[in-house]
Design a protein around this nucleic acid. Structure first.
Lengths: 248, 248
DNA sequence: AGGCGCTTGTGAAGCCGTGCACAAATCGCG
DNA sequence: CGCGATTTGTGCACGGCTTCACAAGCGCCT
């Protein structure tokens, strides 16, 4: 590999993993926890790949970036691998997360158990609407967004979730960044402008459906047409095994 | 499911566009609607790219796949482009969507206005829990999952959203496919196996946070070494222009 | 009518990610 | 102790996506 080993800094951490690999590590982690609960001590790359829904070669290459992990002829030690991935992802401690906007979606997110079980703690809820401030949700009190700087500092929050209407999202993002938040998960359907050094990930539910809509549209167009003009390599629903997933 | 070809199809209809392009078209569409509301008649690729948060060359190449769209020296006609994209995405009619699982998250999704305003209609709610069947949510009655085939057929549903716990998701997916659904948006944190020809997109909220966690971890590891300002909140930021977003 | 400025559309180059195929490494067993 | 079975780690080639840079086209102004 021509991965640049820049000099002596063969540090304990892993500066550059491919972004695609990073996006898959959580998937492996989930599958590994599942395997651990089922009592497995080791997994082969083939087995873990199947559980995570990816190609086994891809999985091995992904894990190879973490350093020595597997044992040839045996496989991967489940608990060891869990530890390594959690280390790399920075999940060795529960990260505090702020949630802004306790409307329809925000309410649900505040109560979503998956955050708690996978390394995060919703540490604070915010809303701009004074009539919502003070409300109790899942053991937390909704605070006004003006309290952001104070709470962010107090709770050492670096990640925030935006679940506000789109028109408020940019303003909220600005205030979050100002308060010291450096990672944002945005559920509002809009583009956020943030300074360099701040990461934004976006989840747009309608977009996901629209992408599916395209594929539906294409499928129905194909079945409506005679199967005359079709290139050999392209379309066609050959029955290979396993599910296909359009991933992010 | 008989999808009739309606209208005069003037031109090559559905070329296979790159998947990456398909994923961005909804983003453009949203930006265009926003521009239209602001009274813009035309947009340059530069302007639309900025509104959608992408590179302008990429945007032009994306749109070039749709056929002749823009006018050199002028830009793109906003309403025309909206029509073209909606056509390609199959959004010329509102697609009926089924939502399975009206728990915490499902409730919120059932009430999410964004679906309605962007081409979809939640046509039915399902749950396996009999105590939830009959409940009214947002003008819809929750039906038991056994009614799936009947309702899917009745309402011509081809897209479904799974918002069940993970352990139930595969079973639900099987029944959806059996009932004729060919596109699934999965919110349950698990891998779904579906036959070929069925599309699955997955949204895992915890994974998004874990990816952000990695970047947080990396950032803090970087600032630990060089010039020391040990305030955990505010890390040193380079000042290149523009925000950075970790995209899909 | 002709030129000029602006914007699109695209050829070409480079980068990243994927998957195959195989050598290296490890364990278990005779 | 050595051999075979097994599985990891990775070199390599390929395809897709992104980005740059620029020629081609269009409208406007003189």
């Amino acid at each position: 590999m021509s991965q640049q080993r820049t000099g002596p800094t063969d540090g304990p951490d892993f500066p550059d993993l491919p972004e695609a690999t990073v996006a898959r590590l959580p998937e492996y982690l989930r599958a590994l926890h599942h395997l651990a609960e089922d009592g497995h001590d080791t997994v082969s790359s083939e087995g873990l790949a199947a559980a995570a829904g990816v190609n086994s070669a891809k999985l091995r290459k992904d894990l190879s970036h973490l350093g020595r992990t597997g044992t040839r002829g045996v496989g991967y030690d489940v608990t060891l691998l869990i530890d390594q991935i959690e280390q790399v992802l920075g999940l060795t401690h529960r990260r505090a997360v702020a949630l802004v906007g306790v409307g329809n979606l925000g309410h649900a997110l505040a109560g979503y158990a998956g955050f708690g079980t996978r390394g995060f703690r919703i540490a604070a809820l915010f809303d701009a609407d004074h009539s919502r401030v003070g409300e109790h949700i899942n053991g937390l009190v909704v605070r006004h967004i003006d309290d952001l700087p104070e709470v962010v500092d107090q709770e050492s929050i670096s990640i925030a979730v935006i679940a506000t209407p789109a028109h408020a999202a940019q303003h909220v993002a600005d205030r979050l960044v100002e308060a010291g938040v450096t990672s944002v998960l945005n559920f509002a359907p809009c583009v956020l402008n943030v300074p360099d050094g701040v990461d934004v990930r976006k989840v747009d539910l309608a977009i996901e459906l629209q992408i599916l809509s395209f594929h539906e549209h294409r499928k129905s167009a194909l079945t409506a047409l005679p199967a005359a003009v079709q290139k050999p390599g392209r379309v066609g629903m050959a029955n290979r095994l396993g599910g296909e997933a359009v991933a992010t």
